[in-house]
Design a protein around this nucleic acid. Structure first.
Lengths: 143, 143
DNA sequence: TATTGTTATACTCTATAACTATA
DNA sequence: TATAGTTATAGAGTATAACAATA
């Protein structure tokens, strides 16, 4: 309980406003690599760890499993992901990045980080670190 | 340019994830007051300053002017906003809160701040202040 | 019977364009 | 002719439910 008066917009409003702005900033970069926002999100998750089911993948990026299917179809067709039935349980699809998928993700992320820096450089280095750490912590522990 | 390796999710992903979560947290509160997210956004803007046109109001909350109209119809019908033609230029609608609108906004916002505190209390007080200030600054200066 | 993945459908949200009225 | 507001329509994005394959 801080005794200070908090004269600021609501948290959801600030997050969604800045979030929409950053999505708009990312859009041209992703388009240059011919990949959608959901496609990029899939590559990001699979880079950190392969997944055993599409349902788990969908949950981890906050998407419905049904709307991931066209995305996975496209990524597979372009040779960016592997997606093969598990011999031990042929209902599930083992998911992972191909080298091409890894390379594309790396290239796109590098450009995205440069675009983010333009925004984040408005903050002093210490505030920037605190901001990013807080944002990551709140997102992972609650959402 | 910080020389540190930045092993974190992309900024847009973190913002949208936490933003969606906070919207979900707000939803039951707004529903209890029988008001939509856009309706609440309108009340918030008008509390800070009356507006001279609906187009300006739409722009200030990042919405299309056409999708604001049913929202304004509803708010007006419930006596939460005033919306009268400007005698000096009868094309424009002068917009402002009624006392009832101001009271409803205040009540809802109080509950929303309490819900936000549950999340924000995970941060040390200093980090919390830095986080909120940074978020507000980045949102207003760029988006 | 339960679970994974898929397809088809319906629904919500949003943007586009056309219209009215004022200036 | 230009602008504010409104209406109608179409499009994108998303979720719901039914289905097929496997356990």
């Amino acid at each position: 309980m801080s005794g200070e008066a908090e004269d600021r917009p609501d948290l959801a409003a600030m997050l969604m406003r800045l979030g929409r702005h950053m999505v708009a900033v990312e859009q041209p970069i992703l388009a240059a690599h011919d990949i959608s926002m959901w496609g990029y999100a899939v590559l990001t998750v699979l880079r950190d760890e392969p997944m055993r089911t599409q349902t788990a993948l969908a949950r981890s990026i906050g998407a419905d499993k049904t709307r991931l299917i066209p995305v996975l179809d496209e990524l597979q067709k372009r040779g960016l992901i592997e997606r093969e039935p598990d011999p031990a349980d042929r209902r599930v699809r083992l998911l992972g990045l191909t080298p091409a998928g890894r390379a594309l993700h790396q290239a796109a992320q590098t450009e995205i980080r440069e675009a983010e820096a333009v925004l984040l450089d408005q903050l002093p280095a210490g505030d920037r670190r605190t901001f990013l750490r807080a944002l990551e912590k709140l997102g992972t522990e609650s959402a």
